[in-house]
Design a protein around this nucleic acid. Structure first.
Lengths: 139, 139
DNA sequence: ATAACTGCAAACGTTTTGCCAGCAT
DNA sequence: ATGCTGGCAAAACGTTTGCAGTTAT
């Protein structure tokens, strides 16, 4: 792929649409299931290939958080994430990226700091209120 | 494992020693290779099993950073990490955990925030100075 | 004709698991 | 005798890749 002769095929169209329609943070497999409802013959390999291409082109955002599957996000700009330890739900944090963190680290080390990834973990409202149940699974 | 009848077997002893001797951030496979030099018959499964147990007991620290293998760290207390994009080296950041970040997120959302993970990426001194070479690999 | 793209299946690297034997209590 | 533990091999998991056929230019 030369990144310039990039065609919007039906598969790519549908993958993008589903990613943008979902309230974000889908795993490749979830994207696959959703797309397959509209294009039953699409393959998981195609989904992976195109998610990778989209993210390389900056069309979507690839989340690689700790110890989990990759997730893909229709949004492009950087933001922090918040994960519920009990149900696994992932949400965006309505907080501006703290660039001063990078400045501090650059002052403290001999690295050229190019970015940072910040993830919060905790318990969502639902899971705090239902102490003994697994409220929901997935994104 | 009931976590109380926990025995220090030779395997466990050596795994812990190697983890504490190394300057940290080993992958399970690296631990396996090092331990095997002293206990040639140990199996990779045993290494994984015990790393998991140690980290559950808080005896070591399990790093699960974005999109990579897990790494294990003899140190116990929380700290931030800094990864070189070019050579993959991972270092500790000499910075105190910023608990006020968690307070901000708790104020901004309806989550009970229990922790956070912060990872910086950039270029280490070596890799900045040798622009065209891959300086070193691994931890 | 050429290059990009897809579906399919196989391969991959990492991690987990089942099983049985061995050892400590 | 009970139960934790280790070695081994197989399985599982998420992801990537090779290939052959298809589609668009």
């Amino acid at each position: 792929m030369s990144d310039s002769n990039f065609r919007i095929t039906p598969q790519r169209q549908v993958i993008l649409e589903e990613l943008r329609m979902a309230d974000s943070h889908l795993t490749a497999d979830e994207v696959y299931k959703m797309v397959r409802a509209r294009l039953p013959r699409i393959s998981l390999g195609t989904v992976y290939r195109n998610l990778e291409i989209f993210s390389r082109l900056g069309m979507i955002y690839k989340l690689e958080l700790g110890g989990m599957q990759k997730r893909f996000d229709g949004k492009t700009q950087d933001h922090y994430h918040l994960r519920c330890l009990k149900c696994g739900r992932i949400e965006d944090v309505p907080m501006e990226p703290q660039t001063m963190l990078e400045e501090s680290v650059e002052a403290l080390t001999d690295y050229k700091v190019l970015g940072h990834r910040l993830e919060f973990v905790g318990l969502c409202l639902t899971c705090r209120e239902q102490p003994e149940t697994q409220a929901h699974k997935g994104a």
